[in-house]
């Protein structure tokens, strides 16, 4: 039997494939996550994130490829693995008529070792809701309870499938704080999300997924740097002469010729430029537009995000689908 060694990666995926009735969900995926890392799988709906994480969790069997967690695999060490990982699924609804404490007591009883129900309630900051029925909890509290259920077994490896989807901003920040504390405890966390800000805020490394493949994998700052500029300039312009169809009148070559402009893209009438330094590039952009006799309708800038990385890689917006 392969004993877990200190050097063993927390998660190792090799050549993973999974097809559901003609739909290729995961298409040749390799991945390695090291112990103590917080790793994010990022991508639009349907990119294969959930299928990938459910294969890791032993809920879905891949058509081909190898899965190794903590040096163990699902074929021979399923029971051991279930004891050592914690997870939170995307759509679980826990029994509404049980209380928070009863629910946690139930989940705790499945694990040979772990933290006390009391500690899990504290970790999830549900002390005041201990005797409340699950059905009366808010979305954020339910999600924290799901996290507490994932933590009662004191897992070395934690899988979270879209932990903050559907939560309001305050509840999201609460959950992020909880995840920060878990990271500090040295647990390996693997999460999926389609929120770029979440991945940037929480993850040490991010894999961007699209159509069942990883199309980019690195730390968030380096991924953003790979777009070529740290800033994004967006504008829409109309020509004085040509009227409504004026947007087409801008010559992209003129824009990319500006020093510090790394790339140009036109989506739905809006021009997007990735720019290294705003203070030198923006005046030049203005003068190019003026020289073309164009009138600016909109103009804004923002720091480049993972969203821009995704757009740069796929030509699509994350939330398009």
């Amino acid at each position: 039997m392969a004993m877990p060694t200190p050097q063993a990666p927390s998660l190792l995926l090799r050549g993973l494939h999974k097809t559901f009735a003609e739909v290729v969900a995961v298409n040749g995926l390799d991945l390695e996550v090291t112990p103590g890392e917080c790793f994010g799988l990022l991508g639009p709906n349907g990119a294969g994130k959930t299928t990938t994480i459910e294969i890791c969790e032993g809920l879905t069997t891949p058509d081909s490829g190898d899965v190794e967690l903590l040096g163990l695999n699902w074929r021979t060490n399923a029971e051991e693995l279930r004891q050592r990982i914690g997870l939170q699924l995307q759509e679980t609804q826990l029994s509404e008529k049980l209380t928070v404490e009863e629910t946690l007591r139930l989940f705790r009883s499945f694990f040979r070792r772990g933290i006390t129900v009391e500690d899990s309630i504290k970790t999830a900051q549900l002390e005041e809701k201990r005797s409340a029925r699950v059905g009366t909890l808010s979305g954020g509290q339910k999600q924290r309870l799901a996290m507490a259920c994932a933590l009662v077994g004191d897992p070395e490896l934690l899988f979270l499938d879209e932990p903050t989807t559907g939560l309001d901003p305050q509840a999201r920040r609460n959950l992020w704080d909880l995840l920060d504390r878990l990271k500090q405890e040295g647990r390996t966390i693997i999460l999926t999300t389609h929120y770029m800000d979440e991945a940037e805020r929480l993850c040490d490394r991010v894999a961007i997924m699209d159509h069942g493949r990883i199309i980019a994998l690195d730390t968030p700052p380096r991924l953003i740097a790979s777009v070529g500029g740290e800033h994004i300039v967006e504008f829409a312009a109309t020509s004085h002469n040509k009227g409504a169809n004026g947007a087409a009148a801008v010559d992209p070559a003129l824009l990319t010729a500006i020093e510090g402009v790394e790339s140009h893209r036109l989506t739905a009438g809006t021009h997007q430029l990735s720019v290294r330094e705003l203070h030198t590039a923006v005046p030049k952009i203005f003068s190019v537009l003026a020289s073309q006799g164009l009138h600016l309708d909109e103009f804004r800038t923002h720091s480049a995000t993972l969203e821009d990385v995704f757009v740069a890689l796929t030509g699509r917006n994350l939330r398009d689908e």
């Binding site: 809920l59 279930r82 004891q83 699924l89 679980t92 826990l94 499945f110 694990f111 040979r112 259920c149």
Partner: peptide, 16 residues
Amino acid sequence: DARQKKLLKRLVASPM
């Protein structure tokens, strides 16, 4: 009910 609410799936993902 447990199947519809994905509670069954959550339970079998645990060591139960």
